[in-house]
């Protein structure tokens, strides 16, 4: 405890604040600039006014953003794609980790090793063959009462979702977390006649809240932030996610106020979501999640 007291001494606090200032200043600058007209952004830059919402403050940049870009549509697309990816990701990856961690399944070691091996394959190296591959996949569509089968997933919602549901890191996180839950709980439930799925749903998952929060954030972030993939596989404007919208601002005259407004618009929801989850997220990684 003496050590803790010394650590939180004045010097350590000064360093903490310095780091916090470095981490936060570009984000504060972005939010503040989004409220200012272009001329004032450049005028304020040489003083502390760059970080303060003072002067000619308005939401004009935001209204201009909605005129220039179908921002509402992009936001709805990104929210939908991210939400579906997160929900299915939590379900499928936790289910897989449950089978690998808590059941005596033959061959599970090989499967677990193979799953972990996918962690060393960077997505960028898969992207190009994946484009070719998803274009070969069949696509089922209910049209009235007849089921139509067409070829190719390019330019759809599912091409933005399905390849990213299963995730080795999520399976690993759940696996680590499940290992820390006593197996006696399963035994007791089995004696009471519970099936495996019931144990998963009613015994193990309710205890795995912090792991779920972590997986939710770690699935949500890349889904919301994805850029390279939609650039390659989505052509229709009505299916595009938010990150692609950035391109619209560099086609004609660039207004940096509008760029900052759009950047804030697509960043703030993530920050709010993160702050809502941050306690369980950081604590779960920090206490039991990632270990080498």
């Amino acid at each position: 405890m003496k050590n803790a007291l010394r650590l939180s001494s004045f010097g350590a606090m000064a360093v903490r604040i310095l780091f916090a200032a470095v981490a936060a200043f570009p984000i504060v600058f972005m939010l503040v600039s989004s409220l200012k007209p272009d001329q004032q952004i450049f005028g304020d830059m040489s003083s502390v006014a760059a970080f303060l919402p003072i002067g000619n403050i308005s939401l004009d940049n935001y209204t201009a953003v909605f005129d220039r870009v179908p921002a509402a549509r992009f936001l709805i697309n990104s929210i939908g794609v991210s939400a579906v990816t997160v929900v299915l990701g939590i379900f499928i990856n936790s289910l897989c980790a449950f089978g690998l961690s808590r059941m005596e399944v033959r061959g599970k070691r090989v499967v677990f090793t193979a799953i972990l091996a996918t962690l060393i394959v960077p997505f960028q190296t898969l992207a190009l063959p994946l484009v070719w591959w998803v274009n070969q996949l069949p696509y089922f569509e209910l049209n009235g009462f007849s089921l139509e089968i067409s070829k190719g997933w390019l330019d759809t919602y599912q091409v933005q979702i399905i390849p990213f549901i299963a995730n080795a890191f999520s399976i690993y996180l759940y696996h680590q977390y499940f290992e820390s839950i006593p197996k006696e709980l399963d035994e007791a439930a089995r004696i009471d006649g519970a099936g495996w799925f019931k144990i998963y749903r009613q015994v193990v998952m309710p205890l795995a809240g912090p792991a779920t929060a972590t997986v939710a954030i770690l699935t949500f972030l890349p889904a919301w932030n994805s850029y390279l993939w939609p650039l390659m596989v989505v052509q229709s404007e009505e299916l595009r996610p938010v990150m692609i919208g950035i391109q619209y601002f560099f086609q004609l005259n660039v207004s940096w106020g509008e760029v900052m407004a759009y950047a804030s618009l697509i960043t703030v929801p993530v920050v709010i979501l993160f702050i809502a989850f941050q306690r369980s997220f950081i604590n779960s990684i920090a206490s039991s999640g990632v270990k080498g």
């Binding site: 897989c96 599970k108 799953i115 390849p163």
Partner: peptide, 29 residues
Amino acid sequence: LREQLSGWGMIAPAAVLLLAFVFLPAILG
């Protein structure tokens, strides 16, 4: 038997997706 079947049933969805969207494109590439 039940444990094997339910176990594989639980592992399969994620394993199949990883097979289709990681292993296959890797081999394809």
